[in-house]
């Protein structure tokens, strides 16, 4: 049998960084080929480090990694995409950070899920183009589906019956929508509107750009965010930390370009 190669290559998105000692960092990478893994970047916090900018969180990089006794070690890193416009947009970076946290929380180390990696890369590209929070909704729903947690939304999850075109109960514990008759057995959940049910169904068929291009009225978007957020919370057994940040940024209101001469305040 061939000996295990001493180094391996991977392309991935840097999910997070923890500092180690004076100058090193441990970085968590989510890659298509290796899945999620941790490795040490030696000396990366020094200003002259060659790898520094290539291993920032929210960077897509090609890395060369050497097997180590306890932790693997990065030996080379090269940026594929630095997501500059994404980083320079507060709302978009909040959404992106939330997606990164979901990947980190939902995946196990060294379990490759190439479809999830492709989804992450596609979603970051869309967020960078300014596609907004619907990208995150699609990301959440697809991530749940890829991990085997897809909610059943085409009919009643309990009796299999067709759902009339009316609001229904979305129950994370039952694993999908429940019809009026089955509601008592469906456990805790949230009543969702016809608009949200249609969006949940559309997300199963659409591509990320198609879903992101959908015009969703504000209240349906908010309702979908809450409903999907409850699915995430159920499977994660907690809320992702970054959700509070997304909400906090949302509460600030979009940046308005200030007019050259502001009219006098009526006060």
């Amino acid at each position: 049998m061939a000996a295990r190669p001493r180094v391996y290559r991977a392309e991935g998105v840097i999910l997070r960084r923890r500092n180690l000692g004076e100058a090193d960092s441990i970085l968590t990478v989510f890659s298509g080929s290796e899945g999620k893994f941790d490795a040490i970047a030696k000396g990366v916090r020094k200003a002259r480090s060659r790898m520094r900018g290539h291993l920032e969180p929210l960077t897509r990089s090609r890395v060369l990694v050497a097997h180590g006794r306890t932790l693997d070690v990065f030996t080379q890193a090269e940026t594929v995409e630095s997501y500059r416009r994404l980083r320079e947009d507060l709302e978009a970076s909040a959404e992106a950070l939330y997606c990164l946290e979901l990947v980190d929380r939902f995946t196990e180390e060294r379990e490759p899920i190439p479809e999830l990696y492709a989804l992450l890369v596609a979603s970051l590209a869309l967020l960078q183009e300014g596609a907004g929070p619907s990208v995150t909704r699609f990301f959440e729903l697809r991530l749940l589906a890829l991990l085997g947690y897809e909610p059943h939304v085409e009919g009643c999850v309990l009796c299999g019956g067709r759902l009339p075109e009316e609001e229904a109960l979305l129950s994370p514990a039952a694993g999908g929508l429940a019809c009026r008759q089955c509601r008592p057995e469906a456990g805790a959940g949230r009543i969702v509107s016809v608009a949200v049910i249609k969006l949940l169904r559309f997300a199963r068929r659409a591509t990320a750009p198609e879903f992101a291009a959908m015009r969703v009225p504000g209240d349906a978007a908010g309702e979908l965010r809450t409903a999907v957020g409850e699915l995430i919370r159920y499977h994660l057994d907690r809320d992702p930390n970054a959700r509070r940040f997304v909400e906090g940024v949302g509460a600030l209101g979009r940046e308005e370009p200030s007019p050259p001469s502001a009219p006098d305040s009526p006060l």
Partner: peptide, 29 residues
Amino acid sequence: RLLQPLGVRVTRLARGLPSGADLEYMDDL
């Protein structure tokens, strides 16, 4: 974003290359 409504000027440090850094290994950002 928080300071903007207060009408104060907000600037940030220019971001250049770290001195002693090697151009060849500099990241795009």
